[in-house]
Design a protein around this nucleic acid. Sequence first.
DNA 1: GTGAAAGCGCTAACAC
DNA 2: GTGTTAGCGCTTTCAC
Lengths: 325, 325
Amino acid sequence: MVAAVAGVSRSTVSRVVNASPRVTPDVIAAVNAAIEQLGYVPNRAARSLASRKTQTIALVIPENTAKFFADPYFSSVIQGVAMYLSTTEYTLTLLIASEVDPEKTRRYLQGGNVDGALILSHHSDDRSYVQLARSLPVVFGGRPTSEEGPNTYIVDVDNVAAASTATRYLIDHGRRQLATIAGPQNMAAGIDRLDGWRATTEDAGLDSSAVVVADFTPAGGADAMRQLLASGKQFDGLFVASAQMASGALTALRERGLTVPKDVSIITIDNDYYAQHATPPLTTIEQPTTTHGAAIAETLVRLIEGHEVERLTIIPTRLIERESV
Amino acid sequence: MVAAVAGVSRSTVSRVVNASPRVTPDVIAAVNAAIEQLGYVPNRAARSLASRKTQTIALVIPENTAKFFADPYFSSVIQGVAMYLSTTEYTLTLLIASEVDPEKTRRYLQGGNVDGALILSHHSDDRSYVQLARSLPVVFGGRPTSEEGPNTYIVDVDNVAAASTATRYLIDHGRRQLATIAGPQNMAAGIDRLDGWRATTEDAGLDSSAVVVADFTPAGGADAMRQLLASGKQFDGLFVASAQMASGALTALRERGLTVPKDVSIITIDNDYYAQHATPPLTTIEQPTTTHGAAIAETLVRLIEGHEVERLTIIPTRLIERESV
DNA sequence: GTGAAAGCGCTAACAC
DNA sequence: GTGTTAGCGCTTTCAC
């Protein structure tokens, strides 16, 4: 073993590996030399067992992975998480939450197999995770819909403000008959964006009754657009709560021979390929996705390591002007 | 502890947890009852340490994660991997291969911290992973470019055949002046698809000199298209080695006022949103991505568990006819 | 079929 | 500053 080659005890090797401050430089050098020579790699399992730390962080993914992975927003957030963690000593585990047996996930998380968990809010039922936060460091990427407890740490974009900015942009560009395709009302992002649109619309003294709810997918956006068109409501400015839905809405508009932005202006949220490659390219509110992922991960690491952490971190957004307004 | 409540020894509890065949049904029931009552969750670290198995599989991701995660193909494959593994006892760890310190990744992998590794070929230098396969079960999703060893297990699509099918489709539809936008020639997928195109084109007695190489991105595809246009070569049928590039190519074609498929037919590979939402929607060769991911993971698990495994598994592809030819 | 004992490879008191 | 001694929570021979 390393200790023998370096001529020291196993404890000392352990101290060197863990960068303990009180070890003589000579000894550190000797041990490192031995480590190098032997190609020694500490065993994670043994370490965890003895230190009662796993150095592992779980990223919990809702069972409905199809939607999850198909959404470029999430891939991008995961990327941010993974990249941040690769600069630390923590390892990232992807945990798919089984809906058949939700207990399985909870048990795994609480069974001391991870040091903390990241929950990307995508689904309605996050109550169990809010509870989980009582016994394990947990950070939510996106505000959970269920009531928050004292241990709820959230890193999120200000969805109300983003929707508000978008809506005001429409108004500032002369649009007076507004409509919106909202996101699912069991998700915080869906709720908050609708709230922002409605408040801003009403503040401007405009009618806020043209609302259709969809599911954040292109197909859902197209359906919603058709509904709106069929409703007979007049509108010249449309806020769509996600670029994926906007892409679908564009398709439906084209079916009816309507032109953007001549007949109707569109503004949305997300600067993904849907927004960039739409015809016309969409004016949108960008949320910095990888930055968001990194911030979530960083918050969790700080939490695990006992640092002071803000209960709520807001990630800034940015308006990108293109050709749809 | 569980043993006490169930009135048996720890060994017996261990046997029940690990589904050992020779335990009396009564005892099994008693132990399970105790487990349930106590909410017992076995400690992974202790288990690993004693059994010398980690029940962990690493998914190695090239450092250039930006490209990686932006590619819907990979998100989708990861999804397949994650979903398959969630049905097993294995846990998925995302491992970002540092290019600054490639040794770090290798050491981690060889240090007994995982039972096996999945390499999604995306980058040129996979030699080190082919080597790694000598000491650790490794499965490649996509053929590595470097020479294969006896322990190289590969799960891949037949890229040559896919390109060949696509090219023949163009020819069958009356196109005689063919061109291609090829993928990077340091990646197997890029090389094989070009080979397939060239062979089929030449077999048909057609000119195979109109080739531009790009990097699988939309921007790269657009540039390549402009180059092709500027070259003065005439073509009425174009095979683009990925839908992302095809989407860029479409943009460049539009700039020049060319219409698809009237002026030029386009066929590509990948049935992602680029192919589906392009204008016009692209005729393409679909590779089943989540299935691919699941197959890769399954192969690795079988390998780890000592089952007989094929050295090469080919995933079937499918032609999807749309409006670009 | 079940229990007793040993030990996986490391860290963490505690002594010196 | 370094070595000694336990012990983390499990699995695994080996008896019985």
